[in-house]
């Protein structure tokens, strides 16, 4: 009898707490759909069903998501989701940017980071099915009707001539001009070009070719096979060039596009997953972004490989 009374009491208390929670209810606006993503119907259909709850202005919550405290969590996720990728407004961006976001979306799905695992734990049927994933991949693997024009050879030629004349000095000498650090304070390291090779990538999604280079600390970790948690002082550089068809069915490195650095320091960069992130674009090496918030792009894109210390590249093994 006492036990029964206790259970009833607890039930009533929980009910009262639960009821009180509903009183705090910050708003979740639904701004107008201004420029929906441009994609064929079968693609948009999948996005609508699987992604729009958090990544559009057309959020539709099931009743159980409307109850606090779940509501609070879901609302935060929706606001954050929209900020990173909003399918209701992305249509205003260039086609290449829209496709780029779809590639990133497919990758986050394949790597199991989207939909968010904790969202999937509750919304069991929300995941992208293998068939749907195949449809998305097929769409992206088919080049757009107006395929990206090859990088102009003349521009690459001018860049090359300028580079060998001004920058191609013996290693170790300072460049004439000081390259600005990134907005988050991460310094540009001109010595990156003398680091050893880690791997390379042909990126057909954005028509670039990339070399991944590493400093001595990175190379030692690779040689020792200890890459679970890269040691402080590790630096990776990822150098990208536009693809330039050679006219014989092959592709060569065209104009230099950008160099990106990841500098590991678990203390200095504790608030950004232990890495300092930077990207310098064009042959004048202009720091990317408008302010330090640019690094949120880096961090969210690298989140799916958090188990690999946020490093995407699988380094080629063996001593160097």
């Amino acid at each position: 009898m006492t036990r029964m009374r206790f259970l009833t009491g607890t039930g009533i208390v929980l009910l009262l707490i639960g009821g009180a929670m509903q009183a705090y209810r910050p708003k979740l606006e639904s701004p107008p759909v201004t420029a929906e993503i441009q994609a064929p119907d079968e693609v948009r259909q999948i996005l609508r069903q699987r992604c729009y709850s958090c990544h559009s202005n057309e959020t539709k919550l099931p009743w159980y998501d409307n109850l606090a405290p779940a509501y609070w969590v879901v609302r935060d996720d929706v606001l954050e989701g929209r900020e990173h990728l909003n399918f209701s407004t992305i249509g205003a961006k260039p086609e290449a940017v829209q496709r780029g976001m779809l590639f990133e979306s497919v990758n986050t799905v394949q790597l199991g980071s989207m939909p968010l695992p904790r969202y999937l734990a509750v919304h069991r049927d929300a995941g992208v099915t293998p068939d749907e994933l195949a449809t998305l991949r097929h769409y992206l693997a088919t080049p757009p009707a107006q395929s990206a024009a090859p990088a102009p050879a003349a521009a690459a030629e001018t860049q090359f001539q300028h580079w060998i004349a001004s920058n191609g000095k013996p290693m170790g000498t300072q460049p004439d001009t000081q390259v600005q650090p990134e907005w988050n304070g991460v310094p540009f390291l001109p010595e990156y070009k003398n680091w050893k090779p880690v791997s390379s990538t042909e990126r057909w999604d954005n028509h670039t070719m990339r070399q991944i280079l590493g400093n001595d600390i990175a190379l030692k970790a690779i040689a020792d096979g200890k890459i679970d948690n890269w040691p402080d002082g590790t630096v990776f550089a990822k150098v990208a060039w536009l693809q330039q068809p050679d006219g014989k069915g092959g592709i060569t490195t065209g104009a230099f596009q950008q160099v990106e650095l990841m500098i590991k320091n678990s203390k200095t960069y504790a608030s950004t997953e232990g890495w300092g992130w930077g990207r310098w674009r064009g042959d004048d090496l202009k720091p990317y972004g408008k302010d330090a918030a640019f690094q949120n792009e880096c961090i969210s894109c690298h989140e799916p490989v958090a188990h690999s210390d946020h490093v995407y590249t699988a380094p080629i093994g063996g001593a160097q």
Partner: peptide, 22 residues
């Protein structure tokens, strides 16, 4: 919902774990 949010998420695929390209 709260209990589910605090645990039992699906496992990520093998490929997200550290590996050398042997």
């Amino acid at each position: 919902v709260v209990l589910l949010l605090s645990g039992c998420s699906p496992n990520p695929p093998k490929t997200v774990y550290p590996q050398l390209n042997r």
